[in-house]
Design a protein around this nucleic acid. Structure first.
Lengths: 224, 224
DNA sequence: TTCATCACTGACTATATAGTCATTAATGAC
DNA sequence: GTCATTAATGACTATATAGTCAGTGATGAA
């Protein structure tokens, strides 16, 4: 009888000596990873093209050039892969927000936050559209909502964390949340509407001066 | 052989004398109108609850307490009833925008525009959610897009028309469009994000001071 | 009251999609 | 090279939904 226990994606020896963390992830694991990546890429594409709701599993697997059954080896349904992608996108955004230097003034901090969103929008349009849709589901379908409140709350917390150093003693947590809403709303909203009949250069020309005034007004609101 | 030509919903005499615009719309026509109203109300409800995509025709007719066939007597498919509702909602919003007095200053005009959106959001949450979804489709499904660009363009034109009197000679049409985007984006975006974990009073407290600073910064942007 | 018209109905059909599973192909241990 | 394991496959089934249509009932003209 073998002493080797084979688990989902890793092999573990149970005889005292645990030889190496495994040369492991040989070709099979790489293939699996590659397949999953293909699925995620394809899903992100079709989600942003057709919308999450209108997308079928066949759309995803056809775009990924994989069999339908393969999808179900990796994800249990459409909602799962969407949640995964939303999570990933939010994480990306949070990561970019995290590098703000602590020496910045409130104006610099706000400018930075808006700019991060702006760059994210420019460089990751598919993710932006996905998040925008995801945001919408928060009000529409309670079941999906529960899966997605996590990522979106982390997003708000990240913004709140950036603003925390500038908070005066008795500033309400609600006030900060409101602030985060205003910033996120402005950025998402402006870009979303900009997407009708404006090209990139126009959007860029449009956002710059508006960003300045928005930052100015927000910081004067912030500091009373 | 009768000289009366019966058309879809009106009766026309073709013998010279056209007696009255018809006592006509007797009970039958009222019943038809009532049925259509029930369908529209039900559709608006379920669209805002489940989302347009997730809604089925059965959802609509069940909510309206009508047979499924009845739906198809009034609308040819889901997309048609959605377009109708979007059109209606935009018209409502435009109508409220149209009453701005021409004596207002630019600050007053901006304050007014934002306030109209705010009231519309408070009083017509279902329509607001529908428009928000409709806005999203503009980028997602080219076929639906074509049906809906009309209403959304009229919306932008309405805002541009309000701002036109304050335009300096050589102000670009693009600049005005950008401005309209910023306003619409700010309002839609802020409310949309506000809907997560905020009640009405909080939203009201949140929007007021932000609106003031936003108006101030926008008007300074406007006048250079 | 009678009867023609047409709004309304909901069981039915056709179709699209989710999810399954027996089969095939690739991998890696020996 | 052989063989066990498991990833990938796509034809298949079960189900949900769109859209139809023969039948029912309300309306209004005579």
């Amino acid at each position: 009888m073998s002493t080797i226990i084979i688990m989902n994606k890793s092999v573990v020896k149970d005889n005292g000596i645990d030889r190496s963390p495994r040369k492991a992830s040989s070709r099979t694991e790489k293939r699996v990873a590659k397949t999953q990546k293909k699925l995620l890429k394809a899903a992100l594409e079709v989600f942003s093209e057709y919308g999450v709701d209108a997308t079928t599993i066949d759309d995803i697997t056809q775009r990924a050039d994989l069999g339908k059954g393969t999808f179900y080896r990796h994800f249990s349904n459409k909602s799962e892969i969407m949640t995964y992608l939303v999570d990933q996108a939010i994480e990306k955004l949070i990561e970019k927000l995290a590098v703000l230097e602590s020496t910045a003034t409130i104006e610099e901090a706000l400018e930075f936050i808006i700019n991060v969103h702006y760059c994210f929008f420019l460089e990751n349009q598919e993710e932006f559209i996905l998040l925008f849709q995801g945001r919408l589901f928060l009000k529409l379908d309670r079941r999906i909502t529960e899966q997605m409140e996590g990522p979106f709350n982390r997003y708000f917390e990240a913004i709140e964390k950036l603003l925390a150093p500038y908070v005066r003693e008795k500033m309400d947590i609600l006030r900060i949340r409101r602030f985060a809403c205003a910033v996120a709303g402005f950025v998402f909203g402006f870009f979303s509407f900009s997407m009708i009949g404006m090209d990139f250069e126009e959007i860029e020309n449009g956002i710059k001066p508006l960003r300045q005034s928005f930052v100015k007004s927000l910081s004067s609101f912030w500091t009373h």
